[in-house]
Amino acid sequence: MNRENVFGYPEPVWARFEAPARAGELMAAADVVVVEAGSPAARGRLRLYAQLAGGRVVDVRFQAYGCPVTIAVGQWVAEQLVGADPRVHRLTAADLRQALEITDDKAHCALMGEDLVLALVKRISG
């Protein structure tokens, strides 16, 4: 099946939407935290499963409901978090927009990604 990017999504979005390698979930365990973010504007939801060791993320998966940009945001955040300490390696909506070439009309998707990271930071810190 050759899907084509006929609607002209930015290439970094399309690649992740086509094959989101980190899609899925982690089994519930003491060292696994689950956080969510949602955006009514995007009619979207993101859920992140992170396995932690000493504040670092050692494994991560995401689930997404929403447009292709929302799905790509979930995948990108998951990619960035592997091996990182989200309290130190802060990811913002601006980083997301730059990395995924997100246009203004999809800015809310990037904000949802930032919210997801903030929720994770809060969970680790709290």
Binding site: M1, N2, N5, F7, R43, Y65, C67, P68
Partner: peptide, 14 residues
């Protein structure tokens, strides 16, 4: 239900 419309269309580009 449960399949967001824009993503569904994008994946059904054929």
């Amino acid at each position: 239900a449960g399949a967001e419309g824009e993503s569904l269309r994008a994946r059904l580009s054929d």
